[in-house]
Design a protein around this nucleic acid. Structure first.
Lengths: 193, 193
DNA sequence: TATGGATCTAGTCACTGACAAGATTCAGGG
DNA sequence: CCCTGAATCTTGTCAGTGACTAGATCCATA
């Protein structure tokens, strides 16, 4: 498919997304250029526009994909603590997705596909704090949920920005996060799913 | 000074930084353009280069200033919990500084002035977890320090990206964060400075 | 094999960051 | 008072980018 070049690429959309992930993982979302992407893939500079309309469109597609994968990763994790670990693991394994997802100014936050995937991820994140909807929960449970989210998100973010590299001293991030949460949440018995 | 326009601006450097803060607070660091900045201030498009060399230079200066203000804000806060509240308050009051500070790809992380300011902020952040250096502390204290940092940073980051707007339901962020930390850290007695 | 839609190319425009060369202003010494 | 050097700012230019338009090519299908 990709070896013999024809006029029609075959799966340009998928190829562009993959290339974009590479670039973002290596140099961040800011340095992502549609023209550079087109050059890498070997198409004209305007080809990406047909699949994504514009740069924001491509990043919107990436964010939607990211939220879908994120929801899967969270849903597979048993218990609150392991869901936090899965959160951190996702950030380290898929830094490109993660960075785009949490920079809403990069994409169209009202995109239907993205909203659906994000809702699924939010759902997976909330599960286990209590299976009740937000409104039916106690104030403390809601705050604890925000706390757990903040803890995982802060750890992941600091990690990706290089702010924990010396503090961890070579420890695996996931392991450090697991023992860290154990330290905090054991007294409240928050480790059950 | 600013009313009567002469060839020499008077304090162009300061004026450019202020304008940059406005733009970043309104539209994020990505949309910051040196040429737009020059237009706003009323100088030629190349004038900013003399003070900051390039775009990265301007953002480096902003980050350094931000870390200095951040260190002050943290140092003024009594106790670990209030230091966390100060962390969140800084993020909400100075979103432009905060965003730039925690996106190291935007600036020159090896800049001496920036390193000094950042070291001061790190010092202020660590104070109270234990006045010992990292290496002399117990494993648990070190992890608890990372946890506290992650919690505050995650909360602040989620807040600025709009991810907590519905979860907080109109509550003041600082207040919510205070009760949230109280919920978690009370059992460990981590509220003393 | 003809047709219409999907996919991709080529050309262009305004904008940006970076650089180079020159103009203006200021401070200080003769 | 003028002269000189340094600091500050302007003008001109170049390559790279996102976005848009028109047109070329290919494919399915009838």
């Amino acid at each position: 498919m990709t070896s013999e070049r024809t006029y029609h690429h075959g799966d340009l959309r998928r190829t562009l997304l993959a290339a974009a992930l590479d670039v973002i993982a290596a140099h961040g979302p800011d340095s992502l250029s549609l023209r550079d992407l087109a050059r890498r893939v070997g198409v004209s500079h305007a080809a990406p526009a047909h699949h994504f309309k514009d740069r924001t469109g491509l990043l919107t597609a990436l964010a939607a994909e990211g939220y879908a994968l994120f929801a899967d990763a969270l849903a597979d994790a048993p218990g609150l603590q392991e869901r936090g670990v899965a959160y951190v693991r996702f950030a380290t394994r898929h830094p490109a997705y993660f960075q785009v997802m949490f920079r809403p100014e990069l994409y169209r936050a009202d995109d239907p596909a993205l909203l659906a995937a994000k809702a699924r991820a939010t759902q997976a994140l909330r599960a286990g704090i209590g299976d009740l909807p937000d409104a039916a929960r106690g104030e403390d449970d809601r705050l604890a949920g925000i706390a757990a989210w903040s803890l995982a998100h802060g750890f992941a973010t600091l990690l990706l920005t290089g702010n924990l590299s010396d503090a961890l001293e070579g420890r695996a991030p996931e392991t450090a996060f697991r023992s860290l949460t154990g330290l905090i949440f054991t007294t409240r018995g928050g480790a059950e799913g």
